[in-house]
């Protein structure tokens, strides 16, 4: 088996996931939050593919493909929402969109 050990891949995946999480939690622009979410998903995809490679079967890869498809649709919906917000002249700031407050 060639290439670096699976641990490295997992480390990169962890870094990606953490970066994405921090982005989701800390950034205020919904666009960036969506972007960070994508990064988290790609971190997860990387872990899935790394494990698939290590185990030697295709299940993980198929899973990753499914995640990509879902992520694509999610981006469509998310971006659509953001465009709608912008069109209505609502401030693009997640801290100001607090209509769900109980």
């Amino acid at each position: 088996m060639r290439g670096p050990d699976v641990t490295w891949y997992l480390a990169v995946a962890g870094v990606l996931f953490a970066t994405g999480s921090l982005g989701v939690l800390l950034r205020r622009s919904p666009l960036i939050v969506l972007l960070s979410l994508e990064i988290m998903l790609n971190g997860a995809n990387l872990a899935l593919i790394a494990f698939a490679r290590q185990q030697g079967d295709a299940e993980g890869q198929i899973f990753a493909l499914a995640v990509m498809a879902v992520a694509a649709s999610e981006v469509v919906v998310g971006l659509g929402l953001i465009v709608a917000l912008a069109r209505r002249n609502v401030a693009l700031d997640v801290d100001k969109l607090t209509t769900l407050r109980g």
Binding site: L25, V94, T98, L100
Partner: peptide, 18 residues
């Protein structure tokens, strides 16, 4: 009482999920 947990801030929800 439960309504107070709903802050309306996205990050709170995200943090709760995380």
């Amino acid at each position: 009482g439960v309504g107070h947990a709903q802050t309306g801030y996205l990050r709170t929800y995200a943090l709760a999920i995380a």
